[in-house]
Design a protein around this nucleic acid. Sequence first.
DNA 1: GAGTGGTCTAGACCACCAC
DNA 2: TGGTGGTCTAGACCACTCA
Lengths: 267, 267
Amino acid sequence: MPSQSVPVPKLAPEAGRPAATTAGQGAETAPAFSPLYRQIKGLIIAGLQAGEWRAGEAIPSEMELAARFGVSQGTVRKAVDEMAAENLLVRRQGKGTFVATHAEQRQQYRFLRLTPDPGQDAGLGRQLLDCRRQRAPAWIARELQMRTGDAMLEVRRFLHSEGTPVVLDDIWLPGALFKGLTTERLREHRGPFYGLFETEFGVHMIRAQEKIRAVAADEETAALLKLPVGTPLLSVERLSFTYGDKPVELRRGLYNTSHHFYRNELN
Amino acid sequence: MPSQSVPVPKLAPEAGRPAATTAGQGAETAPAFSPLYRQIKGLIIAGLQAGEWRAGEAIPSEMELAARFGVSQGTVRKAVDEMAAENLLVRRQGKGTFVATHAEQRQQYRFLRLTPDPGQDAGLGRQLLDCRRQRAPAWIARELQMRTGDAMLEVRRFLHSEGTPVVLDDIWLPGALFKGLTTERLREHRGPFYGLFETEFGVHMIRAQEKIRAVAADEETAALLKLPVGTPLLSVERLSFTYGDKPVELRRGLYNTSHHFYRNELN
DNA sequence: GAGTGGTCTAGACCACCAC
DNA sequence: TGGTGGTCTAGACCACTCA
């Protein structure tokens, strides 16, 4: 005998589901009704955030989660479905559900939309130029939701294709989250930075916004990318977020699009 | 008594669900097993493609569709869920499920990622420059999957913000699909082109790919956009598709990104 | 064969909308 | 008041993986 007033056991008190009618009170702007499966999703995200399961590890099976939260498997399934659609989790039939990671081959460079023209080599090499601790200037502090002057890491690097530089990246990170990150650590690391950030610092990028413009190469950039001053470059400014919509990385890439392009899918 | 061998009535013969085990035969590369809900999805898409329901109209209720296809409501729901996630359909609680359209206010300029800098006016005006019938050159024919020399429409237009031109668009369309499209028709039309294409020609854009580069303004472009020759511009090449992954529009925009940027969300 | 996710069903009740 | 989509449950069986 299914009944919607029975469940909601082990949920946190404030997560209690509003009963039958959306009765009075109506305080503030929105009653903020949220279905059970969304509350479950919130609890799973809280677990990820708390580090209960690390990147690449399996989370408990749907049946286990259903038992733990006191809901049916179908409700857990719907929560996990949404999280899989958002690339927070990865389902593998017969094996389990895993915390998404940037470290795996299949998922590497998930956020990089740069694509070589036909006939170009697909692989991109990395070259670290610089990594130093600075005090955050106002505009970066604003983006990363820290205070002007707070500790900040500044990284500069190349991506190159067959020896010629294609991308010049400047990367800014909150110093508080990346204590102990050094030039050597970055240089020794194999694979994408985001993999390192996950395994070494527990910082997991789940979403990003990019703002793209066309700009002219200034003298410094032109010299570094071995291009004439004034060459049109793609400026890609990326703000990346972890769980809880917390911004944790600001990045500005300058792309030489002579033999590569930025690919985007619209739906 | 649910049983997975019972259903599958009114489905098209070739859509029949493979029974229990993925038995022998194994011809070619993939057995191409597809679950019931995906077959239902295919049938609904076929209906859209055939014009059974037009853009903006409601499709039958989930119960009706379930009865028609001889499956449970839950299976129809899963099919519709996927289509809603792909922006093919729009669900409205209490009202029904509707064929997505580019004509509505809410959905207008769904594919336009150009965003004004803070303080800039958000609205963009349109100005038609030209519309003529041509023969498709090889490179366009290839993209639109037609033959070189086939009839093709070529449209050129501006988007401008507060009087100054921001975007110069060249648009190429297969002549066969847009018979009767004239300069006057385009000029008189209010709202986005994609709305006109839907209502007048039954061509519905559901998906697009963009390739983005930074380029320097040539003389003609510079004059049209009132910029110095060599100004860096964002080149946005868009290929749009209808049902069945059929390409039906090629477009190349040159964006002045001095006071606007191209916004993208990464997941 | 046991365990995991994937599909499908059937039925209940809720929230929203229009008449 | 009746219809629509939205949520939740319970249970069956299938497909895949691994020991």
